[in-house]
Simulated scan of single mutants.
Amino acid sequence: MKTCLVVDDSSVVRKIARRILEELAFSVIEAEDGEQALELCTKSLPDAILLDWNMPVMDGYDFLGRLRRLPGGEGPKVVFCTTENDIDHISRALNAGANEYIMKPFDKEIVAAKFQEVGLIQALSAESA
């Protein structure tokens, strides 16, 4: 089973993401901020990371830069999931090593489509979506 780390300071967003990702057959780990997420990644790298931008302690952008410098840190597929929708934020995220970018609010279809694009899941049939 693939593992996804959900990094968001909102417990509600983490709960929604967990439900969606578990339906997509992921084992889910959670972190409230980039610092917690980095600590988890130094112990064991997940297959995927669903990452918020704006968080206390360490934001998603700083976390991503540090993740990519860890041994093996280029491995996890990182999907930013944020309310930041201007082209500057999107290009900064992708240039820093994010694999995809989705906007909040999100649903299962959006998450599944982005995870499929980066090769984390196979295409979902109409019945399972």
Rank of each mutant, 00 (worst) to 15 (best):
K15T: 12
F106Q: 06
I102W: 11
D107E: 06
G119C: 14
P105L: 15
E74W: 11
M58N: 03
L5R: 07
V79Q: 00
G119Q: 15
G34A: 02
L50F: 00
V111G: 05
V7A: 05
K43L: 07
V12L: 13
C81I: 00
P56R: 09
Q36K: 12
G97R: 04
I110Q: 07
R92W: 01
E30R: 03
L50S: 00
M103R: 14
A37M: 02
G97Q: 02
F63D: 00
L124G: 09
M58K: 08
A25L: 08
A37C: 05
I110N: 02
G97H: 00
E74T: 07
V79W: 02
Y61R: 07
L70V: 12
D8Q: 10
A129V: 15
L94K: 10
N54Q: 11
D86F: 07
E32N: 06
G97M: 02
I20R: 08
E22V: 15
R19G: 13
L21V: 11
V13A: 09
P46D: 03
R66E: 08
E127M: 13
I87K: 05
I49G: 01
V79M: 04
T82A: 07
L38W: 03
S91W: 12
D62Y: 03
L94S: 06
T42E: 02
A31G: 06
E23K: 13
D52G: 08
A48W: 00
D86H: 13
K104V: 12
K15P: 12
V28W: 06
G73R: 09
M58G: 06
M1C: 15
D59R: 02
G34H: 06
I90R: 06
G119V: 10
D86R: 07
A25P: 05
R18A: 11
